[in-house]
Design a protein around this nucleic acid. Structure first.
Lengths: 121, 121
DNA sequence: CAATCATATGAATATATGTTCATATGTTAT
DNA sequence: ATAACATATGAACATATATTCATATGATTG
């Protein structure tokens, strides 16, 4: 016959430290928050996007320049710029046919720097 | 006939601002660095791993507790813990059959906090 | 308005990745 | 040793994602 302890098992395994789990459960972040956070970091999790962000942290640039700089197709760059735009990490201004992209705010530089600090340690 | 400017094109499109591109090119990070950085951020780019990291920032926990807390299989948690271990974001200690996981250092909390600040703004 | 240039985008493809399932490993207790 | 438990892991599968290709859009110039 099942005991009370068995009833709180969730994954087919008995919870070993029920008090800890209950305590932590109360403090966990909302699913929505976690998902937003994951999406935010995911944007930084690609070499092409990091290169673009780093380049734009030095100077604003147009799509064609970025493509040349990174030796990639205009289309590939454009697709990634869309991702960065949707994540509100970059902004742009139009000047005739040319569109100049730049970082949305200095906040991005800080995230970048913090990541670099970890990688270089 | 082609001009000199056409020769420096890389992606089939002419570089518009050669001076800017050359300047930025000198300052770009090494490929290796960018790849490490992308891998670092990629680890944060998954809701399950974020939940685990956040839970461990509150208290050390064993695999079974984490599985119960997140209503996920022991296997799924274990696989993700492996990713977090390889990224050196968590450490563990053994006590009999139970293995307790915890954050590797406070640095992780800072990255987490910075991401949260961006998401909540 | 026709041609050209800079950029954007949809579809297709190849690769990466998260979870499940089954099973293995390592530890403890009987 | 054997059983039971906590965790780890390899293979399979389903989904996500980065790039390419072809083409569309929007702006300028002749």
């Amino acid at each position: 016959m099942k005991t009370d302890k068995d009833d709180i098992q969730t994954c087919g395994y008995t919870i070993i430290h029920e008090d800890v789990v209950n305590d932590v459960r109360e403090k966990m972040l909302a699913d929505e928050t976690i998902i937003s956070l994951a999406e935010f970091f995911k944007v930084f999790g690609d070499p092409t996007r990091l290169n673009i962000l780093y380049a734009l942290s030095i100077s604003e640039m147009c799509v064609c320049d970025l493509a040349a700089l990174l030796s990639m197709s205009q289309s590939a760059i454009s697709h990634q710029l869309k991702v960065l735009r949707q994540a509100r990490l970059i902004k742009y201004r139009r000047e005739g046919k040319v569109i100049y992209y730049s970082l949305d705010d200095d906040h991005i530089r800080q995230v970048f720097a913090q990541g670099l600090a970890h990688v270089n340690e």
